[in-house]
Amino acid sequence: MSNAVDHDLAISQQGHYAGAATRMAAYAIDQAVATGLYSLGVAVFAWILTLVTSGNLDPKPILGFASVGYLLWLTLYFGYPWAVSGKSFGMALLGLRVVAADGSKLLPKKAFLRIVSFPLGFLTLGIGFLGILFGKEHRAIYDRVAGSAVVYDWDARSARWRFLARHGNES
């Protein structure tokens, strides 16, 4: 396998600023999971509500509540893991972590600020995200607002040892 080269590359970049591809992938995973979970939750809640009300409710206010609830859910989904461990589910899968700009642990206040300012990336029509690709520190607009940064945080050395051990045993 050619994975050895990639492992070497990853080992040398632990603690470095994470790039755009990995962050986008992690966000996609998180968004999918969060939306899926919320959809599932809403579906369950609607099913229970239908059972209770016999299907006589007006769906419009429910959709409005559902939108607000979705935003709150996303805030909770991203904000809480960032404040506790610095990584959401998708970031954990791809080995990323949110840290303070100087590399220290992200404080809960900054984590909250980051999730609150996260929509700025979309509200600026995507310009707020360009910093991830073109910035020297790969920081988006919400990273600058919250004083945060995203770095690689996976145990690539152990991964390399696992890789070597498997191939050593196979040979």
């Binding site: 990639d6 970049q13 990995t22 690689y152 690539a156 991964a159």
Partner: peptide, 8 residues
């Protein structure tokens, strides 16, 4: 490991 390495 492979996914992470590819991402990097």
């Amino acid at each position: 490991d492979v996914a992470r390495s590819q991402g990097v």
